[in-house]
């Protein structure tokens, strides 16, 4: 190998000192421990028998393993249909959203674009609008556009978020302009610059946002509840919410025990966790970015 001076071999490894490493570990352990408790609680309660699940407090291990909670959820709710609906809406929505948001983010990175600041502010502004202000208008709007009780309605509402646009802009800002310049000099069109330079170099950011947007769409409840009254179009959170909080009336006796409620929660979160474990490869940066060396 290159023996650029034996000094190279005498340098300590480029890491934190053992003490610092230990502290690092301790910190992460603390985070890990506190965060795993509620998850264990949800899991444990979901596998507990009906009466035992009513016990107050944080249960970390079922007194008796049973799938009674899951059975209740299964018989009470049409999960397969809801699962299909959620998947369709979230996948299509996220795909379109990422395309549009990243393009918009790219536009906001162009330094000399006239009205660039105004556009950014405009988009930022849309994030400030509280839901209560548009509560009734959103329903009326969807009605006018004929989007009630439809897949289009579920996909189009909340399709684009200023959050993703501005975050994509942020990640794009660390892409060196020189690359874009040289591509433009070579007569490359904007789309080409965008797709072949900016996107690949922002992959971790892009992946993170894609995943978070998917989660957001999957968990969306407020607007779907507003515009969907046909049970065949219910998304998974709607079905599970309906189940878990069926006892809304003041003195009804239709009671859903905690084990079924927690089972419903587990069922709604499992797809996201599975997706996350797959997406992690991008999120921890398994892909090296060769272009910077270019």
């Amino acid at each position: 190998m290159i023996k650029a001076g034996r000094a190279h071999n005498l340098l300590p490894r480029n890491q934190l000192s053992p003490l610092q490493k230990a502290l690092n570990w301790l910190l992460l352990l603390l985070f890990f421990a506190t965060m795993i408790i509620p998850m264990l609680n949800v899991l444990a309660v979901s596998f507990s028998p009906r009466l035992q699940s009513m016990q107050p407090g944080v249960i970390l291990w079922p007194s008796q393993w049973t799938v009674n909670g899951y059975q209740t959820v299964w018989t009470r709710a049409n999960l397969s249909r809801a699962f299909f609906n959620s998947s369709l809406v979230s996948l299509v929505g996220t795909a379109v959203q990422i395309l549009l948001s990243s393009m918009a983010g790219y536009v906001l990175v162009q330094k000399n674009l006239p009205f660039r600041r105004a556009l950014s502010l405009l988009i930022l502004f849309t994030l400030m609008i509280p839901g209560d202000l548009t509560l009734i208008s959103i329903y009326a709007l969807n009605k006018q556009l004929g989007l009630l009780n439809s897949y289009q309605g579920l996909i189009l509402n909340g399709l684009v978020s200023g959050f993703s646009i501005l975050l994509m802009r942020n990640y794009f800002q660390s892409v060196p302009e020189s690359l874009a310049e040289s591509a433009r000099i070579d007569k490359a069109g904007e789309l080409r610059v965008f797709a072949s330079i900016y996107l690949p170099l922002s992959l971790p950011g892009l992946a993170s946002i894609t995943f978070l947007e998917f989660v957001g769409k999957w968990n969306a409840l407020m607007i779907p509840v507003t515009i969907i009254s046909d049970p065949g179009l219910y998304t998974l959170p709607m079905v599970l919410r309906q189940l878990a909080f069926a006892t809304d009336s003041t003195s009804g006796v239709d009671y859903i025990a905690p084990n079924a409620q927690m089972a419903a929660i587990v069922i709604s979160v499992i797809p996201l966790i599975i997706l996350y474990t797959f997406a992690q490869r991008f999120l921890i940066g398994g892909l090296t970015l060769g272009a910077t060396k270019g």
Binding site: L135, I136, I138, Y139, A140, K143, L221, M222, P224, V225, T226, I228, Y234, M238, V239, R241, Q242, F245, D248
Partner: peptide, 14 residues
């Protein structure tokens, strides 16, 4: 499915 109060307002309001 949820938010009954909200939904009543929205439906009547529209």
């Amino acid at each position: 499915a949820a938010n009954y109060g909200d939904v009543v307002m929205q439906k009547l309001g529209a």
